[in-house]
Simulated scan of single mutants.
Amino acid sequence: MNHTIVTLKKGEGRTIKSGGLWIYDNEIATITGSFKNGDIVLVHDFDGYPMGRGFINQNSKIRIRMMTRKADQEINEEFLRMRVKNAWEYRKNTVDTSSCRLIFGEADFLPGLVVDKYETVLVVQCLALGMEQMKETIVSLLKEVLAEDGIEIRGVYERSDAKERKKEGMPIVKDFIGPEFDTNVEIVENGVKYLVDVKDGQKTGFFLDQKYNRLAIQRICKDKRVLDCFTHMGTFALNAGIAGAKEVTGLDISEYAVQQATENAIRNGLQDVVKFRAADVFDELPKLEAAGEQYDVVILDPPAFTKAKNTIKNAMKGYREINIRGMKLVKDGGYLATCSCSHYMDYENFTRVIHQAAASAHKRLRQVEFRTQAADHPILWSADESYYLKFYIFQVVDEK
């Protein structure tokens, strides 16, 4: 056991004292003992009170990520098995596990690690140096724990290709962990079939966090004319189609996304109802409005417009504009589904923007429901970064 002790400044450590897992570089008073980046260290409060153990990295502003609150707990294979087993048991109790997020970093007390399961394939993303050293052990433990429930994993692919790794002093990695396998995986979610490309798809191949939000829009799409903006792989559009929509249009700026979405429509026998085309949503919505188009349901699922605090103002303009445009395209009494997947665009800011958009579009909104990310992406209270997805469904009523 490494006996390096990190002592916090007086008055610091508020995040971990309230249940979070991060200690920043400017919160530390002293470090005693020798260590190398990625090692587990013991954290003391300013008065010597032991606060737990975590791994240190002097390349990162997030200097320490906590692994346990118990100062005498060994971070070994037995400990990691306990964390992995707890994560899997939680998913079995809360979500459809055929395809789901198995490990969600800090919210599963395995900071910096994400593991998604697509049927019998695992996709791993590691964003922290300390976790990098445990990654392969955790993968083999996951395989063992899943095998206990009769699930044999046929392949593991690593998608550690996010820029955050550079902040940790680590190279970008995109490769197989273990034997090579076919990286196109068919999954079924809410009755819709998709082909997921875990090697070259966005993030880890698919956005599992919207699973139950996609299901929620099925109720309002039967016999309706639907517009799905920023459709990506056609997920909301196909949920509308399978729910019995009479006509669905999906828009995305990426030709590759449109091609994938079209193939997914064919896979579900929905190609006559659900159509996709490549277009910049910001350019296209004013054109549709000018042409007098009206829809029963408009869905806005944009990428994160902000990934930093200093770009929130510009992001708010972007969210305001698409929501104004989207609302104007909804028939009186129709529905708007709108969301933000940016952690920095918090609930208050996002809600304020929608209020402003409704006033500008001269529309009244009746809230049908407010939702967030699926339960396999749990929100750990006190770890703010784990809460990022905000999703509203409104009925849009003309002011008259």
Rank of each mutant, 00 (worst) to 15 (best):
L8H: 07
K9M: 09
E12G: 03
G13Y: 00
K17H: 11
S18V: 04
L21I: 13
I28A: 12
T30P: 08
D45E: 10
M51S: 03
M51Y: 04
R53F: 00
R53I: 05
I56G: 03
R63D: 05
R65W: 05
R65P: 07
D72E: 11
Q73V: 05
E74D: 06
E77Y: 07
V84E: 05
W88Y: 13
K92V: 14
I103E: 01
G105M: 05
G105S: 03
F109A: 14
F109C: 11
G112I: 01
A128V: 02
M131Q: 13
I138R: 02
S140E: 12
V145W: 12
E148L: 09
E148K: 14
I153R: 03
V156Y: 02
A162D: 10
K167H: 09
V173Q: 07
E180D: 11
D182Q: 01
T183H: 07
E186T: 06
I187S: 11
L208C: 10
Y212D: 05
Q218D: 10
R219K: 09
C229M: 06
T231F: 06
T231M: 04
T235I: 07
T235Y: 13
A240P: 12
A243F: 08
A243R: 08
A261Q: 01
A265K: 12
A265Y: 10
A278H: 04
A279W: 03
V281E: 00
F282E: 01
E289S: 12
G292W: 09
V298D: 10
K307P: 04
A308W: 15
R325I: 00
L336Y: 01
A337Y: 02
Y344K: 10
Y344R: 04
F350Q: 14
A361L: 08
R364I: 14
F370M: 14
F370Y: 10
R371K: 14
P378H: 00
W381R: 15
E385I: 13
I393G: 12
V397T: 10
